[in-house]
């Protein structure tokens, strides 16, 4: 297990909504929980991963995520069991999509 904590610059600020969960903690997969909270220009991401030593890859994946989405002011927590960057990016995109779709 490795715990990695990042703060990435976000393209814009997200609207505050109810928490969103996508994905499952399962082999080759990850679950992503998105909540409101934090500075509006940055996104805080907390990663718990079963795979050791992939810090630089997480950094790059999350930087690109910040460039893609208006995720400012969001707090994201990820439980990962060896998901590939493609799967992680997909889950993050799905989570943000669900966040934006939620009209609560």
């Amino acid at each position: 297990m490795e715990r990695l904590q990042y703060e990435v610059e976000a393209r814009g600020a997200a609207t505050a909504r109810k928490p969103v969960l996508v994905g499952v903690t399962a082999s080759g997969n990850c679950e992503v929980l998105v909540e409101a909270g934090g500075a509006p220009e940055r996104c805080a991401i907390d990663v718990h991963t079963a795979a050791q030593g992939f810090g630089p890859i997480w950094q790059a994946v999350l930087r690109d995520f910040g460039e893609r989405h208006a995720a400012g002011g969001l707090k994201i927590e990820i439980h990962d069991v060896g998901a590939t960057p493609a799967v992680v990016s997909l889950r993050l995109d799905q989570a943000l999509e669900a966040w934006e779709d939620d009209d609560a």
Partner: peptide, 22 residues
Amino acid sequence: LPPEARVSSPHMVMLEQPAAFD
């Protein structure tokens, strides 16, 4: 007790295994 309540297993953490929020 939705995911954000983080009521998850204390054992998995001790075993160094990723938990599930729920």
